[in-house]
Simulated assay, not measured.
Amino acid sequence: MAGIVREFVGLPSPLVGRAGAGGHPCQGVYHRPAGAAPTTAFIAAHYNVDFSEHYLAEHLAARGHGFLGWNTRFRGAEAYFLLDHALAEIGVGVRWLRERAGVERVVLLGNSGGGSLMAAYQSQAVEPNVTPVAGMRPVAAIEDLPAGDLFVALAAHSGRPEVLTNWMDPSVTDEADPLSVDPELDPFDPANGPPYSPEFQARYRAAQRARNERVTDRVLERLDALRGTRARDRLFNVHRTWADLRMIDPSIEPSDRRPNRCYQGEPAKANYGVFGIGALCTLRTWLSMWSLRTSQCAAAPHLARVAVPSLVIHATADEGVFDSDARAVLGAISAEDKRLELVRDGHYLPESRPLAADLIDGWIRER
């Protein structure tokens, strides 16, 4: 878009040094209108996805705001993610906006998986609660994070452990064999559905949670076995994570989404492919990000500490975030000033970006 200035921002991390090739750990692109210094700016970050050129950055800059699409050192490196480290590096971006860009109000934009991450940031900033994962040292830099002034949850998931568990294929009988299957729980066996009976859905959801707990048990056992060895951690795979029944059966939580679709296309094919959330983990990353028992990346506890004005935007044709997810996010936010808006589009808003930008801009200007 004409009239938009884009500034590359590369900054040190309080935890690690620059890469050997010279890159800063914390990087992003600041978008702003030419000839103006915005008083309000957004910052958006994700667990893994590169948000430096976020799809709303230019649209919001064109409406007079700043937008820092921000990356921690875990962009493209989800397998090594540690929540407390990421929060410290998001804080680097927030401080840059206040101290270098001259911004008076910072809006935390939690998009997609970044919804729970930015909620965790605000939660830690106002009431420190995040602790190190097993065997790691405390991170001093998260004890004094600058808080955001407003919060926007855009097509936001309910948290990393919840979304992985909801998408897990519980018919896996052997974690080392991606083809292993219990036919009684196989979502792609026509004998089971779709449509899926309420009884099957209940068994399936319970089995998904049980699979997550089994992985956690195995991770804790492996970490314990590493004590006294030369290794402190190890890698492992999690197979088949595109099997939320709602993706396959549109009669479960009806919406505007296309039936039998997920973010990777047809669920049956995606589920047996090699691209999936949580597909590669370290033991400690599993505990930090994906485990129902130990992860601090669940949104609800953090949203309960979000008391600033908050806007939730739900895409009604989203292939992976459902109406119940959006309403749960809204309900968990403690702010009295909070609103839910609906946009009829898919997860990345391919047709509705100007509309979403108008919604957010209008909401910001009302405050």
Rank of each mutant, 00 (worst) to 15 (best):
M1Q: 10
A2G: 15
G3S: 06
I4A: 08
R6C: 10
R6V: 15
R6T: 13
E7A: 07
G10A: 15
P25N: 08
G35K: 01
A37I: 08
A37R: 15
P38T: 09
P38D: 09
T39N: 08
A41V: 10
I43Q: 01
Y47K: 03
V49G: 02
Y55L: 14
R63N: 06
H65R: 07
G76F: 11
F81N: 03
H85G: 06
A88T: 09
G91R: 02
V94N: 00
V94C: 01
R98G: 07
E99N: 11
V106I: 11
L108E: 04
G115P: 00
P128D: 03
P128V: 09
V130Y: 01
V130K: 01
P132H: 02
A134P: 02
G135Y: 03
M136D: 14
V139E: 01
D149T: 05
V152C: 09
A153G: 11
A155G: 14
A156G: 03
S158A: 13
G159A: 10
R160P: 00
R160W: 11
L164G: 04
T165M: 12
M168S: 15
T173L: 14
D174R: 12
A176V: 06
P178M: 10
D182K: 07
D186R: 06
F188C: 11
D189F: 12
A191P: 06
Q208D: 09
Q208R: 15
R211E: 14
N212I: 11
R218H: 12
V219D: 02
G228I: 03
N237V: 09
W242C: 13
D256N: 05
R258I: 12
R258Y: 10
R258K: 13
N260D: 15
N260T: 10
R261D: 07
Q264S: 12
Y272S: 14
L292T: 05
A300C: 07
H302E: 00
L311R: 03
V312I: 13
T316M: 04
D318L: 05
E319A: 13
D325F: 08
D325K: 01
A335M: 06
E336L: 10
E336W: 05
R339S: 12
E341A: 15
E341H: 07
D345S: 13
G346R: 14
L349W: 06
P354W: 04
D358C: 05
L359Y: 03
G362Y: 03
